[in-house]
């Protein structure tokens, strides 16, 4: 990471600077310590005990909860679902978002209006979104069935068929979050200096070559920023799946966060819920570290 500390004459004494750093970051860190890190530490402790939130005692069971979780076939099925969901939603949001942004980046009329519509699902609450979409997905009277009917297709039984349920929740997730990606891409596109395109044209590059050599590299920092934030959001996406399918049919749309909720808040198994939370945290932490390294090294220009 590059650091561009400004040195002011009166802060040559570094300790004074350290103190200032502490004062500025301190309140944020203090609040997080009490309301976010402490629960994580407590959760880490719970992952080594057997407890149901109600008993007076919490017997220490070493790694039993971890062994139970990792030997459970359901856990690995859910890990697989989480992987599919995250890759598809993050990939879908980033790629479709880019496509949309490129198309509506042209100097078109009503561009602001279109942007507002594209962004509006971002501000809708997940529960309302899920309810509206369950109407759209119904294979007998849903809006999607009517629309597919116009082109002579039959609607699959989206929320009931174990094969189609995952695509359904992915579609809704992308629908809800694509606006965020589009807006950021649009901003990124505006930030690419025009003279780069002109230089490329002088070199005889066609539209495709310009896109490949100028637009894409210009957008890479945006894509990295989006991927960090959208991976973290996607991993913790709860409302939409909970209301649309509750992880079903069977476990077809159950992800780690749903599993964590089920273990903790329905099964009252604080230990195994603790394990799943630690797994989730560890995965996100490692992924973010890798991305940050890459982001900071490859993308800090301009």
């Amino acid at each position: 990471m590059t650091s561009r500390a400004i040195s002011f004459p009166w802060t040559k004494r570094k300790h004074r600077e350290w103190l200032l750093f502490g004062l500025l970051v301190g309140p944020n860190l203090a609040l997080f310590s009490i309301f976010t890190y402490w629960p994580l530490i407590y959760n880490f402790y719970l992952s080594f005990v057997r407890w149901n939130f109600l008993r007076p005692t919490k017997p220490w069971v070493w790694f039993n909860n971890y062994i139970d979780t990792f030997t459970d076939a359901k856990f690995w099925e859910i890990m697989g679902n989480t992987l599919v969901f995250t890759v598809a939603t993050v990939g879908g949001t980033l790629l479709l978002g880019l496509l949309l942004a490129l198309l509506i980046n042209q100097p078109l009329r009503f561009r602001d209006g279109a942007r507002a519509i594209v962004f509006s699902p971002v501000v809708m609450s997940g529960a309302v979104v899920a309810v509206v979409w369950s109407y759209i997905f119904d294979p007998r009277y849903g809006l999607l069935d009517q629309i597919l009917g116009w082109v002579g297709l039959n609607s699959p039984d989206w929320l009931v068929d174990p094969f189609w349920a995952m695509p359904a929740v992915i579609i809704v997730y992308i629908w809800k979050n694509i606006g965020y990606a589009v807006v950021i891409y649009l901003a990124g596109l505006q930030g690419i200096p025009r003279d780069l395109y002109e230089a490329a044209r002088v070199d005889g590059a066609g539209a495709w070559a310009q896109f490949w050599n100028v637009t894409l590299p210009g957008l890479s920092p945006v894509a990295f920023f989006l991927s960090v934030t959208s991976i973290l959001t996607s991993f913790q996406s709860f409302d939409i799946i909970k209301v649309l399918t509750n992880g079903g049919p069977v476990n077809a749309t159950s992800t780690l966060i749903l599993f964590l909720y089920e273990l903790g808040f329905v099964s009252y198994d604080a230990g195994e819920a603790g394990v799943v939370a630690m797994v989730l945290f560890t995965i996100m932490f490692i992924l973010t570290l890798i991305q940050l390294r890459y982001l900071e090294r490859q993308v800090s220009y301009g």
């Binding site: 040195s7 350290w18 890190y37 994580l40 709860f238 808040f265 989730l280 945290f281 570290l289």
Partner: peptide, 26 residues
């Protein structure tokens, strides 16, 4: 971004890690 502090990047990662702690466990 601007104030000198040893291990500043670790502080940054610790702050970011708050984004990775599921609200369910808090």
């Amino acid at each position: 971004a601007f104030v000198r502090f040893p291990g500043k990047n670790y502080v940054f990662i610790i702050l970011l890690s708050a984004l990775m702690i599921p609200v369910e466990i808090t």
